[in-house]
Amino acid sequence: MPRSAIASERAVIRAETRRRWSLALPALTVITLCSILPLVVMVGYSFMEKGQYGNVEWGFSLEGWRAVILEKDFFDDSYIPATAHLTILGRSVALALLTTALTFVFGIPTAWFIATRSPSTRAFWMFLITVPFWTNLLVRTIAIQEVIRADGTLNRLLLATGIIDEPLQMMFTNGAVLVGMTYVYLPLMVLPVYAAIEKFDFRLAEAAYDLHASRFYCLRKVVLPLMWPGIAAGSILVFIPALGAYVTPRLMGGGRAMMWGNLIDLQFGQGRNWPLGAALSIALTLVVLGAMVWYIRRVAKGGESIG
């Protein structure tokens, strides 16, 4: 190719690169200014000194990060584990994992059920799963709250049938938060698992079965590997919002069963400890990113080679 042709080819590529970058630029600017920059500010705040009335004061300090796990003893100023914070962080991880497990227990059979219906009724069942997915999370939390609160539907039912004599106090407990989160996040498990099962050629399982594979062997060696990408995607889709949940634990758990997101909010409100709140925010973001990286490394790539 003559040199001038190469040069003009390069110019074309350069022009196209410029044109396409400028197309993406407005969106990139908005996200950089409103999402990435504030996050950088938060990283900075987590290393600053706490202001007396909220806000921060200039000056480097690790106090915010230390306060995540340690607190000063009231009497002798030595550092002891910050039990209150650690309890909340531990509860958040535990409840997020349990929510994932429960959505798994209910979600997988549901996805399987939908995927094995005839194509015409499948659309109807899928519609039933998509509606809650699109419905306001706050409204769905109110709905489940109405069922389990002290004078709610469940208690009235149990009282009327004489199973209990006094209403059960279910609200503002870890269990209430767990029920609430399982209820609101369930569709997030069903949708990706359904997508994986739907692609599955059931003749493969039948073939394995015909070749005298036991049901369990067939399930483990044929069905599960094909469902695995969907299960992993569903687990990530449930675990991540559950870990950082704010609305559901606030309504179902109140002050007694607080979660990580509520603790962050508290530091920027009544707590007036912005460096601690910033450190908690960055820590939560890092855990979420870690989960995401694990997913992309272990599952998204492996899943492609299987499917």
């Binding site: 993406a24 996200i31 996050l39 870990l243 920027f268």
Partner: peptide
């Protein structure tokens, strides 16, 4: 094009951050 992967990551960045963190950080700014 050059930097295409980077554009992609930035576009999806708001999904990678917990909602409460996104909200509080933006509130502060």
């Amino acid at each position: 094009i050059k930097g295409q992967g980077g554009i992609f990551v930035i576009l999806n960045q708001p999904l990678l951050v917990p909602e409460i963190v996104f909200a509080i950080a933006l509130m502060v700014v």
